[in-house]
Design a protein around this nucleic acid. Structure first.
Lengths: 99, 99, 99, 99
DNA sequence: ACCGTGGTTAGCTTTC
DNA sequence: GAAAGCTAACCACGGT
């Protein structure tokens, strides 16, 4: 690891928003990574809220959300199973030199 | 709860994608809700992957992801704290007729 | 909650093995719980090791452990899916007053 | 790796329990490995449930499970520390011809 | 309002 | 040393 980045400073409270000059370029870079992550996490949170809303709407017209969750889970499992099965097939193929 | 929507059918394997006529309009509606949810969850998953990638990139140039996660967590806490403080302020203001 | 048990004392290093008289009966009880848990966890760890050994044996006679793990996972998914489907059925039944 | 064992067959749903004759002895062997693993994993899962139950019991009489988990963790760490210290001692001893 | 359950995330272990 | 799978803690939701 490059030593330049080692000083990845947890800061006290107030300074955390400002890239400190003393840290130089590494600080800028880190800041940029952090902000990208935060942006993505905001979007993720927003989606989680959207999902909740959909369950809410469905409930409002009489569907049971527990049931719905179970269905969603089952369907996801199907999907994963299918994917895993494909993976297995790939493994076989490459084991048999058919890759 | 209205019984009309209860029968949200467990299907054997393959039929799960087709709304069955016997279920009528409720089935269609449920299907639509489920699909909206699934779409949103896919997006959410995609974002989670994006986030992981960013951590990966950062790691690749020498940042420690554990530290980064801590920073992100701290900043989120700050944000929430600030937001709560604002809420409190609003409450005070409206209590004092300053809203 | 009974106050008697509140003092469930994280101890410094050395005393942790002895039930302290000052804690009285609560300490004895806690100790007993802790020891039961530790016993169970030991067994669990032992099983994990056994499992690893089986994979090792299988590998030693030419089976690919990645493939095996996939198979095990797929079979477990089948099992779970079946269980979930049952759960769903239960939900329906109780929703229809057939419980 | 011997190719003989490669064909560890993805099966459609229902057939997975029957060793297929076409696979011959390798299939039987694989099946036996898989089943041993599954058996062990079941036991492991059962133990995990037992552990959860013990925490439940403890909680029911007023102990805080989070604290208990901390204690268990600490004691495990102690144990490992002690074991490592012993290992070290062994190393010294054998280095000094006192084994 | 609380409890129990389910989902998510982080850390650890193991594997390649 | 990186990548993945497993496990355990945490948190949030829904039901009672």
């Amino acid at each position: 690891m490059s030593e330049a980045n080692v000083a990845a400073f947890p800061n006290g409270e107030e300074k955390i928003d400002e890239t400190q000059d003393v840290e130089g370029v590494a600080g800028k870079r880190l800041k940029s990574f952090i902000e990208r992550i935060e942006r993505l996490e905001e979007e993720k949170t927003a989606l989680a809220e959207d999902i909740k809303e959909v369950y809410g709407e469905a409930k409002a017209v009489g569907f049971d959300s527990k049931t719905m969750r179970t269905i969603v889970r089952l369907r996801k499992m199907d999907l994963e199973k299918r994917r895993e099965a494909d993976d297995l097939l790939e493994i076989y193929k490459s084991a048999l030199g058919m890759a």
